[in-house]
Protein backbone atom coordinates (compact mmCIF):
# COMPACT_ATOMS: atom_id res chain seq x y z
CA UNK A 1 0.00 0.00 0.00
CA UNK A 2 1.30 3.50 -0.85
CA UNK A 3 0.82 6.92 0.73
CA UNK A 4 -1.54 8.28 -1.96
CA UNK A 5 -4.12 5.61 -1.18
CA UNK A 6 -4.22 6.51 2.53
CA UNK A 7 -3.57 10.25 2.69
CA UNK A 8 -6.18 12.92 3.32
CA UNK A 9 -6.57 15.02 0.20
CA UNK A 10 -7.44 18.72 -0.05
CA UNK A 11 -6.55 19.61 3.53
CA UNK A 12 -7.09 23.09 5.00
CA UNK A 13 -4.12 25.34 4.25
CA UNK A 14 -3.05 28.91 4.91
CA UNK A 15 -0.79 31.54 3.34
CA UNK A 16 2.49 32.89 4.69
CA UNK A 17 1.26 36.47 5.02
CA UNK A 18 -2.01 35.67 6.80
CA UNK A 19 -2.56 37.11 10.26
CA UNK A 20 -1.70 34.46 12.85
CA UNK A 21 -4.68 35.25 15.06
CA UNK A 22 -7.07 34.69 12.12
CA UNK A 23 -5.51 31.34 11.23
CA UNK A 24 -5.38 30.12 14.84
CA UNK A 25 -9.06 30.98 15.30
CA UNK A 26 -9.92 29.14 12.07
CA UNK A 27 -7.94 26.10 13.22
CA UNK A 28 -9.74 26.18 16.57
CA UNK A 29 -13.13 26.37 14.88
CA UNK A 30 -12.35 23.41 12.60
CA UNK A 31 -10.65 21.38 15.34
CA UNK A 32 -7.27 21.33 13.53
CA UNK A 33 -3.88 21.02 15.22
CA UNK A 34 -1.87 21.98 12.12
CA UNK A 35 -2.23 23.45 8.64
CA UNK A 36 0.30 23.42 5.78
CA UNK A 37 1.56 26.87 4.73
CA UNK A 38 1.66 27.43 0.97
CA UNK A 39 3.00 30.14 -1.31
CA UNK A 40 0.94 31.60 -4.18
CA UNK A 41 2.07 28.80 -6.53
CA UNK A 42 0.76 26.20 -4.06
CA UNK A 43 4.23 25.06 -3.02
CA UNK A 44 4.77 24.04 0.61
CA UNK A 45 6.72 26.60 2.68
CA UNK A 46 6.13 25.20 6.15
CA UNK A 47 3.56 24.12 8.69
CA UNK A 48 1.68 26.13 11.25
CA UNK A 49 0.72 24.08 14.28
CA UNK A 50 -0.77 24.82 17.66
CA UNK A 51 2.48 23.43 19.11
CA UNK A 52 4.75 25.74 17.09
CA UNK A 53 2.52 28.68 18.03
CA UNK A 54 2.69 27.76 21.73
CA UNK A 55 6.47 27.41 21.45
CA UNK A 56 6.59 31.07 20.38
CA UNK A 57 4.26 32.13 23.18
CA UNK A 58 6.22 30.52 26.04
CA UNK A 59 9.23 32.77 26.75
CA UNK A 60 12.38 31.19 25.36
CA UNK A 61 14.37 31.92 28.51
CA UNK A 62 12.17 29.49 30.42
CA UNK A 63 12.54 26.54 28.08
CA UNK A 64 16.13 27.11 27.00
CA UNK A 65 17.68 27.62 30.43
CA UNK A 66 18.29 25.13 33.17
CA UNK A 67 14.89 25.53 34.76
CA UNK A 68 13.52 22.04 35.38
CA UNK A 69 10.03 23.54 35.53
CA UNK A 70 8.31 26.71 36.68
CA UNK A 71 5.70 25.05 38.86
CA UNK A 72 6.90 27.35 41.67
CA UNK A 73 5.65 30.44 39.83
CA UNK A 74 2.04 31.68 39.87
CA UNK A 75 0.27 32.84 36.73
CA UNK A 76 1.94 36.20 36.28
CA UNK A 77 -0.07 37.09 33.19
CA UNK A 78 2.94 36.42 31.03
CA UNK A 79 1.29 34.02 28.59
CA UNK A 80 -1.64 36.33 27.92
CA UNK A 81 0.73 39.21 27.32
CA UNK A 82 2.92 37.07 25.04
CA UNK A 83 -0.12 35.68 23.16
CA UNK A 84 -1.19 39.20 22.26
CA UNK A 85 2.27 39.89 20.82
CA UNK A 86 2.63 36.57 18.97
CA UNK A 87 -0.94 36.48 17.58
CA UNK A 88 -0.30 39.83 15.94
CA UNK A 89 2.49 38.36 13.80
CA UNK A 90 2.05 36.84 10.35
CA UNK A 91 2.13 33.10 9.78
CA UNK A 92 5.59 33.17 8.16
CA UNK A 93 7.15 34.38 11.45
CA UNK A 94 5.79 31.51 13.49
CA UNK A 95 5.52 28.55 11.12
CA UNK A 96 7.75 25.50 11.36
CA UNK A 97 10.14 25.60 8.42
CA UNK A 98 11.12 21.95 8.12
CA UNK A 99 8.04 19.75 8.30
CA UNK A 100 8.24 16.05 7.49
CA UNK A 101 7.57 15.51 3.80
CA UNK A 102 6.91 12.29 1.91
CA UNK A 103 6.13 11.44 -1.73
CA UNK A 104 2.72 10.10 -2.84
CA UNK A 105 4.31 6.88 -4.14
CA UNK A 106 6.13 5.99 -0.91
CA UNK A 107 5.17 2.78 0.85
CA UNK A 108 3.25 2.74 4.11
CA UNK A 109 6.28 1.14 5.76
CA UNK A 110 8.45 4.03 4.59
CA UNK A 111 6.13 6.76 5.86
CA UNK A 112 5.50 4.91 9.15
CA UNK A 113 9.22 4.60 9.83
CA UNK A 114 9.73 8.28 8.87
CA UNK A 115 7.06 9.37 11.36
CA UNK A 116 8.42 7.21 14.17
CA UNK A 117 12.03 8.08 13.35
CA UNK A 118 11.31 11.81 13.57
CA UNK A 119 10.46 11.36 17.23
CA UNK A 120 8.27 14.46 17.32
CA UNK A 121 5.86 14.51 14.38
CA UNK A 122 2.72 12.44 14.03
CA UNK A 123 1.95 13.71 10.54
CA UNK A 124 3.76 14.30 7.25
CA UNK A 125 2.96 16.45 4.24
CA UNK A 126 2.59 14.59 0.95
CA UNK A 127 4.42 16.55 -1.74
CA UNK A 128 4.54 15.99 -5.48
CA UNK A 129 7.67 16.34 -7.62
CA UNK A 130 7.10 20.11 -8.05
CA UNK A 131 6.89 20.69 -4.30
CA UNK A 132 3.11 21.18 -4.36
CA UNK A 133 0.90 19.79 -1.65
CA UNK A 134 -0.94 16.57 -2.57
CA UNK A 135 -2.30 15.73 0.85
CA UNK A 136 -1.57 14.90 4.48
CA UNK A 137 -0.86 11.65 6.20
CA UNK A 138 -0.84 11.12 9.96
CA UNK A 139 0.04 8.28 12.30
CA UNK A 140 -3.73 7.89 12.77
CA UNK A 141 -4.22 7.43 9.00
CA UNK A 142 -1.57 4.70 8.96
CA UNK A 143 -3.16 2.90 11.93
CA UNK A 144 -6.62 3.24 10.32
CA UNK A 145 -5.29 1.69 7.10
CA UNK A 146 -3.75 -1.18 9.08
CA UNK A 147 -7.03 -1.74 10.97
CA UNK A 148 -8.96 -1.85 7.75
CA UNK A 149 -6.48 -4.37 6.28
CA UNK A 150 -6.70 -6.59 9.37
CA UNK A 151 -10.49 -6.38 9.28
CA UNK A 152 -10.50 -7.46 5.62
CA UNK A 153 -8.31 -10.45 6.47
CA UNK A 154 -10.63 -11.46 9.33
Amino acid sequence: MVVSSVMVTEPQTCCMDEHLDTVLRRMHRLGLRMVPVLDVAGRVKGVLSTFSSLAHIVPDYIVSGDLASVSFAPDIGLLRQRYTLVADKCVAEVMELAPLMVAPGESLLSVASTLVGSGTHDYALVIDAEGRLSGLISAGDVIAALMSMTKDEK
Partner: peptide, 17 residues
Protein backbone atom coordinates in the same frame (compact mmCIF):
# COMPACT_ATOMS: atom_id res chain seq x y z
CA UNK B 1 28.52 29.59 33.39
CA UNK B 2 26.49 27.00 35.31
CA UNK B 3 25.55 29.58 37.90
CA UNK B 4 24.16 32.06 35.39
CA UNK B 5 22.45 29.29 33.42
CA UNK B 6 20.57 28.45 36.60
CA UNK B 7 19.92 31.93 37.95
CA UNK B 8 19.31 34.04 34.81
CA UNK B 9 16.01 32.34 33.80
CA UNK B 10 14.61 32.78 37.34
CA UNK B 11 15.78 36.38 37.28
CA UNK B 12 13.91 37.03 34.04
CA UNK B 13 10.80 35.41 35.45
CA UNK B 14 11.06 37.60 38.56
CA UNK B 15 11.63 40.79 36.54
CA UNK B 16 8.67 39.89 34.30
CA UNK B 17 6.54 39.44 37.42
Amino acid sequence: VTTVLLIAPVTLLITDA
